[in-house]
């Protein structure tokens, strides 16, 4: 099975909130210098899923990332885990990226890679949490898509996919080629061995320019109405304190439970 995995480098989502501020000019969340750049956690679930599929049925794993030079670190990590090839698509400073353009650029890169059976993406990136890119990529390529996948198994040339639904789980039989957006429930990404990580760290990750994949943002942006982010703010939490009283502890507990239910906490 030939699998393509799309990964993204993001500011460490576990860094303290105090280390982020909103840049008024660009309306983007800006991390402070002390926030490390890491692999988007969901994308590492996708890499792990690809490796497990390869271990089960064989094949080849190619990892793609659209981003600046530093994104190579995430690709090296994926190679150390067990991916066969990795290519960075240079995002070119000055370009303004959103889910739509990213999906189309990655679609162009996928076409350049050529033959594939399955594309895996993380369910969302931990920086914007838009969750649109995977679905957008499937649309751009015109292939089937299952989002929020929590399990995938090879089944006679097809795959069986379990999806996290609003209530419960759904199971699909999916013909290939297809794209899955992978949720963290699917697996625990492995740590690479020190030896493989060092070897991957010393590797040069090839990069393709936008011209090389035949992508022109200017041409595309004329084809859609477009979205512009006009404001980015952190809502101020309001705190009120309410005492739930009762004659006995049991009564107070019962009243508290009812109150919590009214607030839809329970």
């Amino acid at each position: 099975m030939n699998i393509i995995v799309c990964v993204k480098q993001v500011p460490d989502p576990e860094a303290p909130t105090a280390q982020f501020r909103i840049d008024e000019a660009t309306k983007r969340l800006r991390p402070s210098k002390s926030v490390n750049l890491v692999a988007n956690p969901f994308d590492m679930n996708a890499v792990e899923a690809a490796i497990q599929l390869k271990e089960a049925v064989g094949g080849k794993i190619t990892v793609l990332s659209l981003g600046p030079e530093s994104s190579s670190d995430v690709l090296k990590q994926a190679v150390a885990m067990g991916a066969d090839e990795a290519v960075r698509i240079d995002s070119q400073a000055g370009e303004s990226w959103d889910s739509f353009l990213t999906a189309h650029a990655l679609a162009a890169a996928v076409r350049k890679v050529g033959q594939f059976d399955l594309i895996l993406c993380g369910r969302q990136a931990a920086d914007t949490n838009a969750g649109q890119m995977g679905v957008g990529l499937a649309t751009a390529l015109g292939i089937s898509c299952v989002s929020f996948a929590s399990r995938v198994e090879p089944r006679n040339g097809k795959i069986e996919v379990e999806r996290i639904a609003d209530k419960g789980r759904e199971v699909f039989e999916v013909a290939l080629p297809a794209l899955l957006t992978v949720s963290n429930e699917m697996n625990h990404p492995r740590f690479p061995t020190a030896m493989k990580l060092i070897a991957a760290g010393r590797q040069q990750i090839p990069s393709w320019s936008l011209a090389e994949i035949g992508f022109d943002a200017g041409q595309l942006s004329g084809q859609w109405a477009g979205i512009e982010e006009t404001e980015h703010f952190i809502p101020r939490p309001t705190t009120t304190c309410e005492f739930v009283e009762g004659e006995t502890l049991e009564e107070a507990g019962e009243k508290l439970a009812l109150r919590l239910r009214a607030e839809k906490v329970l």
């Binding site: 670190d73 090296k76 760290g201």
Partner: peptide, 18 residues
Amino acid sequence: IPKELELLKNMTRDLVKK
């Protein structure tokens, strides 16, 4: 710090944390 050592340091940090 050479890239491969930086990656190994980061992985160790991750292993410690998780």
